[in-house]
Design a protein around this nucleic acid. Structure first.
Lengths: 242, 242
DNA sequence: CAACAACTTTGACCCAGATCAACTTTATGA
DNA sequence: TCATAAAGTTGATCTGGGTCAAAGTTGTTG
């Protein structure tokens, strides 16, 4: 959502969003916000904000990846979303966050004082419309993910995830293109509702079946896109994430 | 979201929403919409709209319960949300629905022509703000549900679901109050990412443990609320659904 | 009210994925 | 460059919840 400031485009690259919402920046809005912003960088692995913490700022991810997650008392954790450049941390109208936010890679945030941001949401109709669109897109994506979590097999989950990563990289879809995996096996597991061992095994199995190759543990290439898409369990037509 | 018309209050009773968003109706908005609405009733079990269908109307549930779901090719289905009075079917800005919508009980809808509704969203800032708030609330609820689907055990899922139903009924929380279950075992299973047999077994087990009693298969009473809440797997403080 | 259909319960068995454990590979930094 | 840690792989085993099957309930309709 780079209507707020356009250091970075977030157009359709978010793994968890359907429609691009950028490329329609309004100059006046930018001007209003220009004086309000401040930047902050968080190192890989560090918490950005904990569930229940008081929300002083509404921030937008400028670079890097953050995760939204919830951990149950006994340590089971579920990642409920990845925040990529242009995604927001904090919602206007909420005084706390309901999930833990953690820097998956080094993350740079652009922050706005929450009160000012909320004032803006009320005064500039354009902005609430954009936030509305974003929220509706993410709601849709969250629901797609619910289908994955509730009904897909381990292999389908992994295939869906890999396809999402590939799609996000947004390069022409002929094979041979290398992609990089921003998450550890454990983070992938927590995103897919699996264990890290199962993730590892499924990736190995896809290697064995010549669907993927890994040049190193974070870099892979799709050898058989059709097989990958087949393995997602989704209809061929429509219904895709992103 | 009864800002649109207030035949029915939806205040805080939605099982999948955190904050009440009603009780702030604006007279002017009501007046504008008054001429646009039409009603429709759908019988229990009937489809309201299929995924991919062209969205002619934005509708709001007036009475009854509808489900939002996705079915994979081989028949596995996941319910991704329940639509209760005041919830919307269709989003401004979208030309199709991405999930199947089905009447769980008899459902009455109040419908608006989509184009007119969208025009209103653009012209009345108030409305996009409300839709934004709703969408953010539902997004949060969807993420909570992702935690359930990805990480909770069968018993925790059932306990969470029952607690949600009880909470939705919104009566003083001393035991003895009878509640009614609007869904079949199969629908519950599809909502929780389980099979109907597992749902049945878990409910029987909670009966055996004197956490619940059933007076008939759709009516139950909580005997031990503390045990129920304990079994949800959530922290005692905060983090609750609704 | 009989007979059929829809829904629910319960039992027996099985298997996908979790758990536990050993080991390998890669990264970090003194 | 060696030591230690972090991340990943692979194997052996276990188990929660799925699958299959049979009966029991409740509801509906002619």
């Amino acid at each position: 959502m780079n209507f707020v400031f356009n250091e970075r485009d977030g157009c359709g690259k978010c793994p968890i969003r359907h429609r691009a919402v950028c490329a329609r920046c309004d100059e006046e809005e930018l001007a209003v916000l220009e004086g309000m912003k401040s930047y902050k960088t968080i190192a890989q692995g560090e918490p950005i904000i904990w569930r229940g913490d008081d929300l002083q700022h509404i921030s937008s991810v400028v670079s890097g990846i953050a995760s939204l997650s919830r951990t149950l008392e006994d340590g089971r954790t579920q990642v409920v979303g990845l925040l990529l450049p242009s995604d927001f941390i904090g919602s206007p109208g909420r005084e706390t966050v309901d999930f833990d936010v953690t820097a998956v890679t080094d993350v740079t945030l652009c922050r706005f004082e929450r009160k000012s941001f909320e004032k803006l949401v009320h005064e500039v109709p354009h902005i609430s419309q954009r936030v509305m669109e974003m929220a509706l897109d993410e709601l849709n994506a969250a629901r797609e993910w619910m289908v994955l979590l509730g009904r897909k097999t381990a292999r389908e989950k992994i295939a869906t995830f890999i396809e999402m990563v590939v799609r996000r990289d947004n390069v022409p879809i002929h094979a041979g293109q290398p992609h990089s995996l921003p998450l550890t096996r454990e983070e992938i597991a927590n995103f897919l509702g699996l264990t890290l061992e199962t993730v590892s095994r499924q990736l190995s199995s896809m290697k064995k079946d010549s669907v993927l190759t890994f040049s190193d543990r974070r870099k892979f290439t799709v050898l058989d896109l059709a097989a990958l898409q087949d393995a997602t369990g989704d209809d061929a037509d429509g219904g895709v994430i992103i």
